[in-house]
Simulated scan of single mutants.
Amino acid sequence: MNLVSVNVGMPKTVEHLGRKVSTGIFKSPVDGRVMVRKLNVDGDGQADLTVHGGVYKAVYAYDLENILYWQRVLDRDDIGFGHFGENFTVEEMPDDRIHIGDVFRVGSALLEVTQPRVPCFKMEMKMDLPGFSRQFITSGRLGFCFRVLEEGEVGAGDEIELITTGPGKITVWDFARLYFFDYDNLEKIRRLIRIPAVPPDWVRVFEEILTSSGEKRLTRMPQ
């Protein structure tokens, strides 16, 4: 596993369907080494902090094979590093092999996988493809977010070392499927929300699914 590219960009305002939209999805590769901090990567920013960024989404990673896949499927040559708003373009880290709660050493930073990426209309705007969010979700190629356990420097070419495998053995794709498609799998939902790395907001979402299915509300110790 390797870090192929580090991508950053500050929010900017663009025209979309007759209105102005502020977005941080436009990111470009940077040279040299960059500090990864608790809330983001140096030089990077998010426009809407209610849905992007923060402690549990400080860094977004997307696999190189996914980028190559979209180049082929969409027959486009404008899709490169950072195109999906990812901070890290990585290699050999597909959604169905990375677990929630996995901890990795990247450069001198220590990072923990917390959740899959959930697309919004800004991705469709960036891609200029209405309805692309659905295609993105069903592809199983969402990428994932990191929480920063230890701040540190990273750079393209760094090896990504697995330090600890997440408890519960729930992959990023498992998590996404439980939310979008497989919400009747109550046993796996119970396993998911017991993983300490899962953000509190997501725990509440899945507890509501359990409650609506007649399950007793589950709780865990606060992080």
Score class of each variant (00 low, 15 high):
Leu110Val: 15
Gly32Gln: 08
Val113Tyr: 02
Val51Tyr: 11
Val34Lys: 06
Ile25Thr: 00
Met125Glu: 14
Arg33Gly: 03
Ala61Pro: 07
Asp78Leu: 00
Asp95Val: 04
Lys122Gln: 01
Val36Trp: 00
Lys12Arg: 14
Val6Asp: 07
Asp31Cys: 04
Val4Ile: 15
Val21Gly: 02
Leu149Val: 04
Lys169Met: 11
Gly101Tyr: 09
Asp128Gln: 14
Met123Val: 11
Tyr62Ala: 06
Trp173Glu: 13
Ala197Arg: 00
Leu129Ser: 10
Phe206Gly: 03
His16Phe: 14
Thr13Arg: 12
Thr171Arg: 00
Glu153Tyr: 14
Pro196Gly: 05
Glu153Gly: 05
Arg204Asp: 12
Arg19Ala: 04
Ser212His: 14
His16Arg: 04
Pro94Ile: 03
Ile79Asp: 11
Tyr62Cys: 08
Pro167His: 07
Ser22Leu: 09
Pro94Met: 02
Asp96Pro: 08
Ile79Met: 10
Asp48Glu: 11
Ser5Arg: 01
Gly131Ile: 12
Gln135Ile: 08
Gly24Leu: 10
Ser108Trp: 03
Arg72Asn: 14
Lys12Val: 14
Glu151Phe: 00
Val4Tyr: 09
Thr138Val: 15
Thr114Arg: 01
Thr165Ile: 12
Leu49Asp: 12
Leu110Ser: 03
Asp201Leu: 15
Ile25Gly: 00
Arg134Gln: 13
Thr211Asn: 10
Pro199Trp: 14
Pro116Lys: 07
Leu129Arg: 13
Ile79Trp: 06
Ile160Pro: 00
Arg190Gly: 06
Met127Arg: 00
Arg147Lys: 14
Phe88Ala: 01
Leu149Tyr: 09
Lys57Tyr: 01
Lys122Asp: 00
Leu129Lys: 04
Pro29Tyr: 15
His83Glu: 04
Pro199Val: 03
Arg141Met: 08
Leu192Phe: 05
Gln223Tyr: 10
Tyr69His: 15
Ile79Glu: 07
Pro200Asp: 08
Asp75Met: 07
Asp42Thr: 07
Glu86His: 07
Glu208Thr: 11
Glu91Ile: 07
